[in-house]
Simulated scan of single mutants.
Amino acid sequence: MKRLSLVCFLLICIFTCAPAVFAGDTASYYTQQLDNRNGLSNSAVNSLFLDSDKLLWAATWDGLNMYDGTAFHVFNYSKDNPLHSIGNNVVLQVTEDGQRRIWLSTIEGVSRYDKQTGKFYNYFYGRQQRSRISEQEYRLIADTAGQLYCLSRQEGLTRYNAATDSFVVCPLPAGNNRISKAVFDSANHLWVLRGDGSLEIYADWQAQWPLLQRYTNVQALFSVNGRIFFTTAAHELMAVSGGTHQAQLQALLPHAVNAMTIYNQHYLLAWVTQGFGEYDAQFRPTHLLPEATRQLQDMKIISWASGSNEQVLWCGTDGNGIIKIYPQTKYFGTVNKITGGRRF
């Protein structure tokens, strides 16, 4: 009887402590919330990035965070230790170049992190004028070879030169408005979205950037799974055909889009206001994550990150930290213990 009672007690503990499980189209999924109670420096996330070592980086309004699967490692500004310090605590973006160097942009400049030495290298921080805290002054992009570029209002488009450890100007043709976003496609063509809604496509840079095509009335630009997508002011989702620059209508959306990703062959679109929509490969509305849709409908999603090997989806939110979504692999699941954590 004692052994039976112990077994029953253990089963009750497992079901009580396990993360929430919900059924999708073909599998069940767990969800877990990670925020400042779990060690995240700030629950307002500006962007997420999963690097080549499968480490998750979170840019927040108060520091850079690296999550190794069990704990958060936080990097903050320190004037007393600049070699081991980011340039500013308001971190807006994180990315990686072809040499596996971690790059981040802040409201005041750009920083590079060397994972081997733990040192930071800061760029553009000598400016006299500072941007308003709500603006994203510096935007980082990498081409198909991993070459890093930086876009800023004052310097324009610059290219990182590792030999001189500096950024070299390689200007784009003058546009009618400031650049709000830019991405490279699989052919190494540069797509530039300006604040006036014009989307410009440029050929690979040699001595200049030849203009290939232009679209108008574009609202948002995304690079997902090797494909280029953009949305229009009429909430049309357009996809670019492979090998061309011709855009085709995929769906009429109910809201403007803030972020976009693909997960388990489904497209997830985060709305600018709050919540997200789910679409299959043909962009028909679907319900891969019905419970997550209900639970996240009141949250504003800023960024997605996913890794194909572990099938984990990371969701960065504005004020609710990071939401981890992952498939059930065992009957009882796997419980990750995180001090002070909350699961839903």
Score class of each variant (00 low, 15 high):
S241E: 12
Q116Y: 08
A270D: 07
S306H: 15
G243E: 04
E310T: 14
D62H: 14
Q311S: 10
P82G: 01
L4N: 13
K337W: 11
E137G: 10
Q248K: 12
A247V: 10
F344D: 15
N309S: 14
I302S: 10
Y125M: 15
G316E: 00
A20Q: 15
Q154Y: 09
C13G: 06
A259G: 03
Q147F: 03
N225V: 09
E135G: 02
C170A: 08
I179H: 01
A71M: 12
D80V: 10
V312R: 12
L288I: 09
Q93E: 15
K330Q: 14
Y77C: 04
G319M: 00
R284I: 14
Y326L: 07
Q93C: 06
T144A: 13
K79L: 10
Q154K: 14
N76W: 00
G226H: 03
A162N: 08
D25Y: 05
S134Y: 12
G146E: 08
L211T: 11
G146L: 09
W304A: 05
I322Q: 00
Q282G: 06
P82Q: 01
V7Y: 12
R139Y: 05
R284H: 15
S43T: 10
S186H: 07
I302V: 14
D114L: 04
N217E: 11
Y29E: 03
K79M: 13
Q265P: 05
I228K: 00
Y125T: 13
Y267K: 06
T261S: 11
S105E: 03
W304I: 13
Q208Y: 07
L249Q: 07
D53S: 14
G175L: 12
D114T: 10
A142N: 11
R130A: 11
Q248C: 02
S306P: 02
L268G: 04
R37Y: 13
G63Y: 02
T158F: 01
G63H: 03
C17R: 06
R101C: 02
N88E: 14
L199F: 03
H84F: 12
Q116N: 14
E278C: 13
A142Y: 03
Q295E: 13
Y29N: 03
N320G: 09
V218I: 14
L268N: 06
F75R: 01
A71C: 08
P290W: 02
T244D: 04
N188R: 08
K300E: 06
G226M: 02
Q328D: 07
N122S: 14
Q99I: 06
Q147M: 06
N309Q: 11
S308Y: 11
F222H: 08
N309K: 15
T158R: 08
A203H: 08
Q311P: 04
Q282D: 14
D196R: 04
W304E: 06
T26F: 08
A233C: 05
T261A: 09
V74N: 09
G63W: 01
R132N: 12
Q311Y: 04
F9Q: 05
N76Q: 10
W191P: 05
L253P: 08
P285T: 07
D35T: 06
G195I: 04
G319H: 00
